[in-house]
Simulated scan of single mutants.
Amino acid sequence: MEPVLHVADVQKNFAGLKALADIDLKIAPGKTHAIIGPNGAGKSTLLNVCVGRLSPDEGAVMFNGRVITGLKPHQINQLGVARVFQTPEIFPDLTLLQNVMAPAYAKRDGPIRLNMLRGLDHDRDIRAEAEGILADLGLAEHRHEEAGWLSRGDKRRLELAMCLVQHPKLLLLDEPTAGMSRLDTNRTIELLKKIKERGMTKVIIEHDMHVVFSLADTVTVLAGGRIIAEGTPEEVRRDPRVQDAYLGGAH
């Protein structure tokens, strides 16, 4: 079966420092694939290469068999790749509902100007879907409030809603539960399980091992810009290289 995403022999250097070295990664359709590793392992750099924010020095990235290396981020997004960033990227002066409706309009109609966003509430179908997603994420009661007042954890959930409304074929999540309470983290885990039931492929970068082992079908471990292990969560948990490099032998 052809992978949804194939990172083929990718290398990336910064001022002579090898951030990614010979990365070969295949993401199977409909699965949840976690990427873990210590700080500085290259995880976010890898996602930035996948979404076109960085260009690899060598190698290529393929999405559904098509080479997407060299495409701009919005072009990759239009193909069906959405990303939840490590630092939430929202419109703080717009309501939560407007934040979620905006990417749905952009997906349907193409780029929209910022000064148009406040009026994005007239399409009943888009509005209903946005309200439903906000409800799933526990944000419905705040839907008419400006997003800038949200807590960090709620901003992360809002950005996840902004991705889900686009119906991506591949969802990339960079620390999706960072800053959340355990209650909100568990709520997000349950939502991501529901998404998996719909067949959406997900790649998750996450430090919280509870999240990783609750969701992942496959885990890839990076250290020093290289893949040091890959397998099921249990296989990775038992791997002594992983315990030494990341889990500290305590898991």
Rank of each mutant, 00 (worst) to 15 (best):
P92V: 01
N115V: 02
E234Y: 05
V221F: 15
K12M: 10
R113A: 14
P233G: 05
D24M: 04
Q98N: 11
Y246E: 15
R127F: 04
T232M: 08
G30W: 11
N186K: 10
S55N: 14
K196C: 04
M101Y: 03
A223I: 03
R237M: 13
K107I: 09
N99A: 05
I112T: 09
V4F: 09
D22N: 13
F85L: 01
G119N: 11
P240E: 14
W149G: 09
G231M: 06
E175N: 08
V10W: 13
H33L: 07
R108Q: 15
K31L: 08
I68T: 13
V84I: 05
N77F: 10
R237H: 13
A34M: 10
R226S: 12
I36W: 07
A178Y: 10
G40Y: 06
Q166N: 14
H74E: 15
L25Q: 11
Y246F: 14
D121G: 14
D57A: 04
D136Y: 03
L191K: 07
I228C: 00
V236T: 01
G40L: 02
L222H: 12
P168T: 00
A19P: 02
V221Y: 12
D9H: 10
N186S: 15
L20Q: 07
E235N: 05
D24R: 05
L215I: 08
R238V: 02
K194L: 04
G59H: 03
Q11M: 06
L158I: 11
L25K: 09
P92F: 00
P73W: 00
A41P: 00
P240Q: 06
R113T: 01
I36N: 07
N99E: 13
D22C: 08
L137C: 10
D57M: 05
K12C: 06
S44D: 15
D123N: 12
D22G: 09
K155M: 13
E58H: 08
E190I: 02
V10D: 13
N64I: 01
L164D: 03
V165Q: 03
E89V: 03
E145Y: 13
T232N: 11
K18T: 12
I227F: 11
P3R: 00
A140F: 09
L215F: 04
G42P: 10
A104P: 04
F14W: 12
H6K: 13
I68G: 09
L120A: 03
K18E: 15
A178K: 08
V51F: 15
G224F: 07
A15S: 08
G40H: 04
E58R: 11
R238Y: 08
L94I: 05
V212P: 13
R156C: 04
V219K: 07
A178F: 10
K12F: 15
G249R: 06
L47C: 01
S44N: 07
D109Q: 07
T95D: 14
T95F: 04
M162P: 02
Q98F: 01
Q98I: 00
A223H: 14
V211T: 04
R143I: 05
G52Y: 12
R118T: 01
P38Q: 08
T220K: 08
A15Q: 10
R113S: 14
A106G: 09
F63A: 03
T32N: 10
A19Q: 11
G148S: 11
